[in-house]
Amino acid sequence: MPPRETVFQLYLRIALYGFRKHSTYRAAALAGAFTNTVFGILRAYVLIALWEARPGLGGYDVVDAVTFCFLSQAAIGPMQMFGGSLDLARRVRSGDVAIDLMRPASLQLWSLADDLGRAFYLLLVRSVPPTLIGAALFGLTAPQTVWRWPEFGASFALGLLTSFGWRYLIALSACWIDDDRGVQALSGVLMSFFSGMILPLTIFPGWLGAVAQATPWAAMVQVPVDVYLGTRGLWEALAFQGAWAAALLALGALATAGARRKVVIQGG
């Protein structure tokens, strides 16, 4: 076992490479930012029409609703809200994952570091510009206090962890399923609908709303945006997200062990 600092440095380096690797796809990221902006504008108009007819719906005013829309658009890139898969899924399908599993490092932490590097790059290129354009076109809610920024940052980071935890499980599922495109597609549906990407979960009626609010997908978009808007208690929010992130990462660790056993015994 190498000393702790070196382990940390290793994963920091992987994160850095993840960031750099994605920065070579700048054109694609900018195209994503453009598309996110267009959809942000279209969705904002729908929400404006709804909130003008029903001011105060779901505890938001119309500006909050538009803010919700653009912040959720901003989550798409870093958290891959339409179920965009980890690079790992492709490596599982091609069998290259066997090489990764033989490395003297944790596959899960390795993927996490790589994914966080990617998320940070996309946050800069794909999340910030659409939000700024939204603010310029419609005017967004400003945080009530300066402390709101680090609070939102913490909640967003936990959202990233939850998103990774979920997508890691989906990627590893390809170890047991011949063709994982179906799982990917279904995961995309769940992520986009139950996170609040389509409409805020607070306006889902009755039991549907209650179920949606309890899912891990709510921890990715709905909860961080609520923390930003100040419509949800901070500690309650962080505890909810932390619980889901921990649960998914623990499941991921189990799945990794299962995958390793499968590769060792069956040879891939």
Binding site: I177, D178, D179, D180, R181, G182, V183, A185, L186, G188, V189, S192, F193, I198, L199
Partner: peptide, 23 residues
Amino acid sequence: QYPLSAAMMTVASFVVNALDIAA
């Protein structure tokens, strides 16, 4: 060739579009 996956993708496509109208 992968019937399970194809079935899930068709279901996903149905659900995705049903979600639009659910919204």
